[in-house]
Design a protein around this nucleic acid. Sequence first.
DNA 1: GTCATATTGAGGTGCGCACCTCAATGCAAG
DNA 2: CTTGCATTGAGGTGCGCACCTCAATATGAC
Lengths: 343, 343
Amino acid sequence: MRPTAKDLAEAAGLSLATVDRVLNERPNVSPKAAKKVAEAIERIGFIRNPAAVALARNKTYRFRFVVPASGDQYLDELISRVGEAKEALRAESTDVEAAQIPMSDPHHVAKYLSAIDCEAVDGVAVMAPESPQVRDALMRLVERGVKVVQFLSGQERMQSADYVGVDNFAAGATAGKIAGRFIGARPGKIMVVAETMMALDSIQRRLGFDSIINAQFPHLQSLPSLETYADEKRAGLVIGRTLHHNPDTVAVYVLSSEARVPLTAVWNAQGGRPLTVVAHERTPFSEQALIDERIDAVIAQDPGHAVRSALRIMRARSDHREPLASQERIRIEVLLKENLQVE
Amino acid sequence: MRPTAKDLAEAAGLSLATVDRVLNERPNVSPKAAKKVAEAIERIGFIRNPAAVALARNKTYRFRFVVPASGDQYLDELISRVGEAKEALRAESTDVEAAQIPMSDPHHVAKYLSAIDCEAVDGVAVMAPESPQVRDALMRLVERGVKVVQFLSGQERMQSADYVGVDNFAAGATAGKIAGRFIGARPGKIMVVAETMMALDSIQRRLGFDSIINAQFPHLQSLPSLETYADEKRAGLVIGRTLHHNPDTVAVYVLSSEARVPLTAVWNAQGGRPLTVVAHERTPFSEQALIDERIDAVIAQDPGHAVRSALRIMRARSDHREPLASQERIRIEVLLKENLQVE
DNA sequence: GTCATATTGAGGTGCGCACCTCAATGCAAG
DNA sequence: CTTGCATTGAGGTGCGCACCTCAATATGAC
């Protein structure tokens, strides 16, 4: 039989009450007693029964995902994954919700974060662009005891918060390697398109991409980043112009998760030229384009995994446990038509 | 407050005892009562508290991984992942163990499986080559109430068991696409090497690989599969001979997870020719070779995920719950030097 | 020594459920 | 009507722990 707290008390030569104080880090415990308990735990291999703990505490966890309001397909997917997790975790008495808020104004985001009632929320996973105001707001949340996860976004990493997402430099490098190898020996230019280059993740992906192209594919040249600002007309204009001025364009790399606008513009303007196309994130659009062989490869991070990972981390932190690093690393996936695994 | 079984009894107009009988599928319940309970569950949104259930049942789960005894690096990795899971699940009162048994003789495997005491084990995840004897033994295990998972292996899928692993045809196709695109326009031959072509997964990968090469890369020709039988000398011989007879070989595809023997033979014999190399499974060897740029791409299925997935499935089945399909699909990963994410 | 404070012990309650027993009801066949 | 069986109800116990109270002891300062 597995040892219980009672066995532990006996082994430590202390009363259940004292053992309880040690286990739950309550005050009025002498260092001597704490040590005796720690030793006894080692000696008899005591492990708290998580079910009993959960039952006795009878606590409900409250976690919130804070994501941009703009409705691109990747975000839609993300939201639906959060909903899935919400359902799955109802049994475990943990409330999961997603708050979609406009991200254009950092002050607004910061205000939203500051207004979070830290009594009503145990953890928040925040997907927001880098900005000092947001960083400050996150710091204050941490100080108020809320477990914060920097979620899939190009914020500078805080050391008082966990990060869930891929290394965007490596993701860009992966895109560069795939693009370079797929293009083959043919020299030419690579068009790089982003929704905006203000986002830190776009910058990092671009740096990673260029590092590989420059080092390993000297016959290729990646053009300056085009920005669409999510505006179809503008996208059509700048992309059309770039393709016109660079008839030796052999590939397109879309940095942002929203690939529909830029790629539609590309296909409208390309005039039958065969282009190697690499984009980011699996969406209904990119999935279909992979199947139709209009995109060659997609570099992705699984939103379902990201959501579950963020939740596991927030849960662990709430319980003062260390999350299992090996399980929580989000991988940089390379998706081709062949390994899409649509069911 | 979340409704308890007591609330449910009240809502159903029945006693706690009857509700308990319904919830735990005990005998002596009229269909009428069962229906009343089901309705009440819907109406008040009752969910059993898993912590309370676990505590009251106070059951320990016993799951066993049955894997080949031969110690290639992928298996070592797998075993160590099982050990990791064992540690992580000690808290949840579930025992996890790995049994390594020789797989060369199907009768022996079948005998081992038949000898499993179904009172002492709740679930087994079996990684064994396809054979009628093994299939029968698995069927009998299922009939005796053991939850069976077909694990990472090329067995024909049983419908009374779950499968954890990738679609090997798709994995082969992915390898084919990567190889074809990485080779580029240069025509030539592709050498295909396996430890043995007796294994169903090797056959499926080969079929997937060829389907892509034949359809999309007509300038490439994949050679008949070479078999090493895990014998270095034999590998050196057949590989050297093949390379000698096919000076226009441009790529090597290693079907098996054990890539060290065949690739060492290739590198010994290749004589400076630049070859595109695609292999399966992440191992210390393949990882290092990716970093050294001696392998171009690795098609992998994460053993850690596979282990955790198998455990979640066996756990769900033991609790008469349906596993969440969306979370349990093992992905076909494409690993390059750039997205290895060594920490 | 006395007092104040820190530390420990004993014991109880309840979390939500599974599992058990025993009595009480219903219902049908005879 | 009685007998037999299926169904239901009432109630208790225990799973392992958190959290609480109150008393008992230890430790220190003075």
